[in-house]
Design a protein around this nucleic acid. Structure first.
Length: 217
DNA sequence: ATGTGTCTACG
DNA sequence: CGTAGACACAT
C-alpha cells in the first residue's frame, strides 16, 4: 500500500502556524489555539496525524471516546507510527475521569509496544495550551522535540516502569540507566535483567512483557 | 510518612 | 542456612 500524498504528509507549517486536519475545524481545541495567537492551516490530506507543528513534530490525538470505545485507537496508533514521517511523533492522550481506568493500558501500548512519546492531557483545552507552547517556542527546554523517545529519563516513563510488578522506585531507575531504549528493556534477556534487579524481579519483568496478550481488556 | 512482608546479598 | 539490609507495596 503506497501512500498517495507523501508530500503533504511531510509538510512543515510556517512559524507560528499549525497544520490541522480538517476534522478539527470548529472544535474547542482550534478555538483555543486561535485565542492563543496560533494560526491554523486546515488540510485534509494529513494522513493519520491530527496536527503538524513548525518544530517538525506531529501529533496524534487520542480522545477519551477513542479510549473507551475500545480497540480502534490501537490501529490508528500503529498506522501513525508506520507512516514513518521525518517528524517527531507525539501522542496526546486524554486522561480524564472516564478514561483513567484505561490510561495505563494506553500508556503501555504507546510507550512499550510502539516506542512513541506520550503526553497526557486533561482535555482539548490543556492540549491547546501544550500546542501553543510548542508553536511559540515558549519553553526553551522542550522535552518533546528533543529525542525524548530514546532519552527516557522523563518522569512518565519512570512511573510506567514502576507499574511492572516487582519493580519500584529503585529498580525502575536502575533499569532505565542500563537500557537506552524502551524496546531494549522489553526484549531484554532474563539473564540481563537478573544482573540488574535480581532473580525474582527479573522473572516478573520478563513475564510482564512476554505475556499472553499485550492488550488487557 | 510509616510499617510490614519479601527479596537480595553476604557471612 | 541464617541474618541484615534493601526493596516494594499498602497503610
Amino acid at each position: 500500500m503506497e501512500s498517495k500524498a507523501p508530500v503533504l504528509i511531510n509538510a512543515v507549517p510556517p512559524y507560528g502556524h499549525v497544520i490541522a486536519s480538517e476534522k478539527w475545524r470548529n472544535t474547542s481545541l482550534i478555538q483555543h489555539l486561535k485565542g492563543g495567537g496560533v494560526k491554523i492551516i486546515f488540510e485534509n490530506e494529513l494522513g493519520v496525524s491530527d496536527f503538524h507543528l513548525p518544530n517538525k513534530s506531529c501529533i496524534l490525538y487520542i480522545s477519551e471516546c477513542d479510549i473507551i470505545a475500545g480497540n480502534s485507537y490501537k490501529r490508528k496508533l500503529v498506522r501513525y507510527r508506520n507512516a514513518g514521517s521525518s517528524f517527531q511523533e507525539l501522542v496526546l492522550v486524554e486522561n480524564t475521569r472516564l478514561s483513567e481506568q484505561y490510561f495505563s493500558a494506553v500508556q503501555k501500548f504507546v510507550l512499550f509496544d510502539l516506542g512513541l512519546t506520550l503526553l497526557p492531557v486533561s482535555g482539548q483545552t490543556e492540549a491547546s495550551q501544550l500546542i501553543t507552547q510548542i508553536v511559540h517556542g515558549e519553553s526553551r527546554e522542550n522535552p518533546f522535540k528533543r529525542r525524548s523517545s530514546s532519552r527516557l529519563l522523563d518522569p512518565l516513563v519512570l512511573a510506567l516502569v514502576q507499574q511492572v510488578p516487582g519493580v519500584g522506585r529503585v529498580k525502575a531507575l536502575a533499569l532505565l540507566q542500563h537500557f537506552s531504549s524502551i524496546h531494549q528493556l522489553c526484549n531484554a534477556a532474563p539473564a540481563e535483567l537478573e544482573s540488574i534487579v535480581g532473580q525474582a524481579a527479573a522473572q516478573q519483568i520478563h513475564s510482564f512483557f512476554h505475556k499472553p496478550t499485550t492488550a488487557d481488556n
